[in-house]
Design a protein around this nucleic acid. Structure first.
Lengths: 110, 110
DNA sequence: TTTCGTTATATCTTTCAGGAAATAACGAAA
DNA sequence: TTTCGTTATTTCCTGAAAGATATAACGAAA
């Protein structure tokens, strides 16, 4: 009858660190190898993608995205091992949260 | 180091039924006795409050808010017993979700 | 030293959600 | 029948967020 939905996010010292949208752009960067290609892949403006990455790096305890400007290919961006670990943990927690809430919905008979 | 935050909401057939903002206005209506007073109490525009209530009633399986227009006092709004029950259940689930996520945060060592 | 595609940044425009305000409709009580 | 404060609804306006555009800076490789 009813469905329960959720959004989770992780905050650092000064604002949002990780959320669903940020996970999406991080994974696109892994796949595409650069910020601009990842933005295009997601149909997102470069500026928006850049703002997200900037915010991620500012709120993380350790570097997440390393950007390189210049070079023959123009540069690019890579996700650090720590970043990849955080992606996995976020997705795990998010999945667990969904399951937990579905269970709650049943228990409360909604 | 990191904090985890969440937003949950319940959807009906055709959109959002209950969320934190809706719970807030419902409780304000119980306290104040009318939609307009509740909106003023929350520093919210009357239109926004009315839109929320309208959406709540449209997506609920049973009536939540009964509004009365006219009368010496001009009318008012009341929350049905079913509505009050839903408020309690939502807040209970929301609290459980917070606890669950805090636990997840520890387990995943973030 | 030139080339290249990228990151980084600023500026301008557009869009749209939300607030403000005005008004009609309502109906019980005096 | 008049009064009252509310609900219900419309229109207008504003401000903030998002997109579009332009361009400087970068630096490894040829």
């Amino acid at each position: 009858m009813y469905a329960i939905k959720s959004r989770i996010w992780i905050e650092g010292e000064d604002g949002v660190f990780l959320g669903e949208g940020r996970i999406k752009i991080l994974k696109a960067i892994i796949k595409e190898g650069s910020l601009s290609k990842a933005a295009k892949f997601l149909g997102m403006s470069y500026k928006k993608a850049w703002n997200l990455i900037d915010s991620i790096n500012k709120n993380a305890s350790e570097p997440i995205v390393i950007t390189n400007t210049g070079g023959s290919g123009g540069g690019g961006a890579i996700i650090t091992p720590y970043g990849k670990e955080m992606i996995l943990k976020f997705e795990e927690i998010n999945k667990n949260c969904w399951n937990f809430l579905d269970q709650q919905l049943k228990e409360h008979q909604l």
